Simulated scan of single mutants.
Amino acid sequence: MKNKNTARGRRLAGICLAVLGFASLSHGVSKGAEPSLEPPLVREAGLRGGNGHGFDSFELYYRQSSPWLDRHVVDPWLPQAVRARWDLTVGRWRGSDGDSAFVAFGPALEAFPVGDLRLSLGLQPTLLSDYEAGDRDLGGPFQFTSHASLAWAPQRALVLGIRVQHTSNARLYSSNPGADIVSIEVGYGF
């Protein structure tokens, strides 16, 4: 079982690296683009590392602006300093009772209240390869991950942040203890 989960984790990491590589190559400067009031970060890729109750977490992430969500969801209801992003994460939880690979994808709201500081809140549906993380049975493979983070995120530069997240299944399964993780993230905004 452990070798099967390790192989799954390697496949997910390979897929994520391919997506990150393709995304960075396919987002060149567009000709004739008009200037916008976008916050400094349009795209970001990086690594997160942290730990939770009985396990360590390692994640690769890619974040990208979402003009459609901004126009149809954020702009009518929230201040101009708030922007929507899509957040894709693949990672691995490593605990004493085994490993679990996961993929999470969903929206995040980001605000730049002071200079290059960024606040982020998000909710991503999450799929786990093994839902027994650490010493916990999370109930099933489909979960939701909510997060709050604070980062220093200057334009076209190294991004440093701290993130607190909670993963649980919103009572889809009979077991729902959830998993909390505190992590440090290092990325690059481009």
Rank of each mutant, 00 (worst) to 15 (best):
R83K: 15
A148R: 08
L41P: 00
W152N: 06
W152I: 03
D135W: 00
D87H: 15
R92I: 02
G21W: 05
D137Y: 11
H147C: 00
F112Q: 14
I181H: 04
V159Q: 08
H166G: 01
A179H: 09
D56R: 11
G52R: 05
F22P: 03
Q165D: 10
F142M: 06
D87P: 00
A45L: 01
R171C: 03
L121T: 03
E44M: 05
V103T: 11
R10L: 15
V103C: 05
D87Y: 14
L117S: 12
I184N: 00
T167N: 02
R94S: 14
A151I: 03
L69W: 13
G91K: 07
P79W: 06
G161F: 03
V103I: 14
R8L: 14
T89E: 02
S175T: 12
N3Q: 15
L121D: 01
G9R: 07
F142Y: 10
S120T: 12
A13R: 13
N5Q: 15
L138R: 02
S146H: 11
W77R: 07
H72S: 09
A148T: 08
S96I: 13
S168N: 05
A13L: 11
V73F: 12
F58V: 04
R94N: 13
V164F: 12
K4Q: 10
P39A: 13
T167H: 00
L121R: 02
Q165G: 02
F190Y: 13
Q143L: 09
A101W: 04
T6Q: 15
I15D: 12
V42E: 15
R92P: 02
D75Q: 13
G49P: 00
N176C: 06
D137E: 04
G28R: 11
G187L: 01
G91W: 04
G91A: 03
A151H: 01
D135M: 01
G52W: 05
P177V: 02
P79V: 01
H147Y: 14
T145A: 02
R163Q: 10
L138I: 05
F112P: 08
S100C: 04
S30Y: 10
L60A: 12
G14M: 07
S146N: 09
G46S: 07
E38G: 04
Q64S: 06
L172Q: 06
E44C: 03
H166V: 05
D180T: 13
K2Y: 13
S96G: 15
L150W: 10
R43G: 06
H27Q: 13
